[in-house]
């Protein structure tokens, strides 16, 4: 399907004998916010790593707005407009907050530099709630602030596709509400987002659609409320009663 923002067809990743992602296919439409969920070890993060180029797929085809990106190195995929956050937050510890954000703008497909990049980074810091802290050292920031910073960095590249890897995990209830609002705003802007998430409340309130993975395979794909009530999805999470 060439109309899709992201199209994954038969993606597979094997580590030796272990198959982490097994023949997964799905399409993400322009402007969609899709949740990628599943129990631990079901292959969600590996799937994200295949899309962002952190790992090479063993087989299958992944394309971004019709351009084949399967097996391309991460930097090339980033330049095509894919940005991501990491499961374990990764800020650049020896650099200031604003430099962390400029890092996302300077090498992506926008290639901003100088005062242009600086203005954009300042606006983004404001946006994620770090306004006025451009010069702050990042290593000593709180966890939520580091997550905000990481999101600002990902947004700085004006990504065509944003991948959030458990971006809401580990936040306390009030932080979570702020986080959910922030993602909702991004969605309202018409961004295309895939989020791997364990926080079900967030999935329910943010996504129209979700994809469920279990043991490396896709087991469900559809409207959130409907998918979450399906028998095979419940048993994937809670274990099979019959077994």
């Amino acid at each position: 399907m060439s109309g899709a923002a992201l199209s994954v067809a038969g993606a597979r990743k094997a580590f030796g004998g272990l198959i982490a992602v097994n023949d997964v296919s799905f399409d993400i439409g322009q402007g969609e916010l899709v949740g990628l969920i599943g129990p631990n070890g079901s292959g969600k993060t590996t799937m994200l790593n295949l899309i962002s180029g952190a790992l090479r797929p063993s087989a299958g085809r992944i394309s971004l707005a019709g351009i084949d990106i399967s097996g391309k190195p991460a930097h090339a995929i980033a330049r095509l407009g894919v940005a991501r956050t990491f499961q374990l937050v990764r800020v650049l510890p020896s650099m200031s907050a604003i430099d962390n954000v400029i890092a996302g703008a300077a090498f992506g497909h926008m290639r901003l530099w100088g005062s242009e990049a600086r203005q954009m980074a300042e606006a983004l810091l404001e946006r994620v709630g770090l306004g006025g802290r451009a010069a702050a050292p990042t290593a000593s920031m709180t966890y939520i602030d580091q997550k905000r910073l990481e999101l600002a960095r990902a947004l700085a590249g004006e990504p065509r596709l944003l991948l959030l890897d458990e971006w809401l995990a580990g936040l306390n209830p009030s932080e979570l509400r702020l986080g959910i609002d922030l993602v909702r705003d991004l969605r309202a802007e018409g961004r295309t987002i895939v989020m791997v998430e364990h926080v079900m409340d967030a999935i329910r309130s943010l996504c129209d659609r979700c994809i469920v993975m279990s043991s490396g395979a896709k087991i469900a794909d559809g409207a959130v409320a409907e998918v979450l009530s399906r028998r095979e999805v419940v048993s994937a999470y809670l274990g099979d009663d019959d077994a």
Binding site: A54, H75, R79, R90, L92, G104, F107, G108
Partner: peptide
């Protein structure tokens, strides 16, 4: 600082 981040911002 972090080579993985570097690759994912397009370097």
């Amino acid at each position: 600082n972090d080579e993985t981040v570097a690759r994912h911002v397009g370097i």
